[in-house]
């Protein structure tokens, strides 16, 4: 018993002495790591992070405590992590949204202030429609909308959300006059779609796939260059309408980040851990079931992915007149 007390006091003395910026990488992780999830419990980002992180923990040999910090389309969580010390003990677990903060006027902290640990996966957008909608293909939908301007209701998730970007993409090449009905997330919007409150919804495949399989809604087109293995019968928009192929593949993504300035060996440890986590069977199955494409990018490829995504999307939003500030102001090049 005495031994334990001695051991404890030495450990206490040591650890107290070690606090501050002295988190030496060999000891990393010397304490719990906080993982701040930008979105709410039960959502896509949350599910992905909670699946992959336990496997990364095994490699790291430490504990990652995950916390949801919602609000301001992820800006609250982003700012919180930005305000912490760059010591690798606070991870940002987020989705694509911060890359649009600058053009949407939500502050000037985006992923350029962070180092990507792993861009885990990318979602594929899909156009789904209410079962009673009088069209079954993209061409029929366009014809119907052009014959009945503003009568067709598109679900949306607010400016800068996936639905608004896909709708902007479609409008950039085809004249489409629709009424956009906003919802606070693709889940509620897809529920409304099944009840007929909206007619068409551009959603991420993962959110709609079970509804399509169960016959509660019908798929119009996959917004990608090739059909997905998860739904092989749904035509890819890039194939049927090649004018969209340049934009694609495009989709929301999930990634783990640390603040810039984090010691390189800590970044290396985290990168290795999450790369391993992305290879786990649980994660691969979850991604396949939900129709996500695994990317598992880190280092320069991840930076390139982020830069490209930001440039394509910011300009789409700018050209659709949704942006509050031009991407030019922030030096985001036109693709």
């Amino acid at each position: 018993m005495n031994k334990i007390i001695v051991k404890f006091t030495t450990a206490f003395a040591l650890t107290t002495a070690l606090t501050g910026s002295l988190a030496i990488a060999q000891d990393y992780p010397a304490k719990e790591i906080q993982g701040i999830i930008q979105w709410g419990a039960g959502g896509s980002t949350d599910t992905v992070m909670r699946t992959v992180t336990p496997h990364a923990e095994e490699v790291l040999g430490g504990k990652v405590v995950m916390k949801n910090m919602t609000g301001g389309v992820g800006a609250i969580a982003t700012k919180f992590v930005y305000a912490q010390k760059p010591d690798g003990y606070t991870l940002l677990m987020g989705a694509e949204n911060p890359l649009l903060y600058k053009v949407m006027g939500l502050g000037d902290i985006d992923y350029s202030e962070f180092t990507p640990i792993n861009i885990l996966a990318r979602g594929v957008p899909i156009l789904v429609a209410n079962n009673d909608a009088p069209f079954n293909t993209f061409a029929e939908m366009v014809a119907h909308i052009q014959a009945n301007p503003n009568a067709v209701k598109f679900g949306s998730t607010g400016p800068g959300g996936l639905a608004s970007v896909v709708t902007a993409m479609l409008k950039s090449k085809t004249d489409l006059q629709v009424t956009e009905v906003p919802y606070d997330g693709d889940g509620p919007a897809l529920t409304a779609l099944q009840g007929g409150a909206v007619d068409v919804m551009p959603a991420v495949l993962g959110a709609a796939i079970e509804g399509i399989k169960g016959g509660r809604m019908k798929a119009i087109a996959l917004v990608d260059n090739a059909a997905s293995e998860a739904l092989p019968d749904v035509p890819a928009l890039g194939e049927t309408n090649p004018e969209y192929a340049d934009y694609l593949p495009w989709g929301p993504f999930f990634g783990v980040f640390v603040k810039n300035g984090t010691p390189e060996d800590v970044v290396a440890k985290l990168t290795a851990a999450y790369a391993e986590g992305a290879k786990s069977d649980d994660f691969i199955k979850l991604m396949a079931d939900r129709g996500f494409v695994i990317e598992s990018l880190s280092g320069q490829p991840a930076q390139d992915f982020l830069a490209n995504w930001q440039s394509v999307t910011s300009w789409l939003i700018q050209d659709a007149g949704l942006a509050k500030a031009s991407p030019e102001e922030f030096g985001i090049p036109r693709p």
Partner: peptide
């Protein structure tokens, strides 16, 4: 530094 103390106790 409770996180460090907890980690130390955990290690012990």
């Amino acid at each position: 530094p409770e996180a460090e103390i907890l980690a130390a106790i955990g290690r012990m």
